[in-house]
Amino acid sequence: MERKIRVLVAKPGLDGHDRGAKVIARALRDAGMEVIYTGLRQTPEQIVTAAVQEDADVVAMSILSGAHNHLFPRVMELLAEKGVDDVLVVGGGVIPEDDYDFLKSKGIAAIFGPGTPTGSTIEFIRNNLKRK
């Protein structure tokens, strides 16, 4: 049996806009993945505990509030604290390109800005899983 890819879709930060997250959740589902949707205003602690309990292969975070440079690295730190090193973490939402390098240096594997075709996100996930 082929192993299902499990993706935790989370919205860290305080903005209340989850349309993008829902669109990507739907697209990943249609690509045959199991998407755990945790909803709005999640703290990094909530996201990381959920990722562990759900045994997620991927954590996909969407953020529009501008707090990505704080929240994304915090998620990476907490994952590391729990000894989780085999989860692929990607980000999306409104993130200035100037911040991409910083976030990647913190371990965010890819940032998908507005207008990214969902197909590219799906392909990236399939090709970059850390767990086989």
Partner: peptide, 9 residues
């Protein structure tokens, strides 16, 4: 698709 959205959590 065999996929799912698990939203109970």
């Amino acid at each position: 698709s065999g996929g799912a959205i698990l939203g109970d959590r």
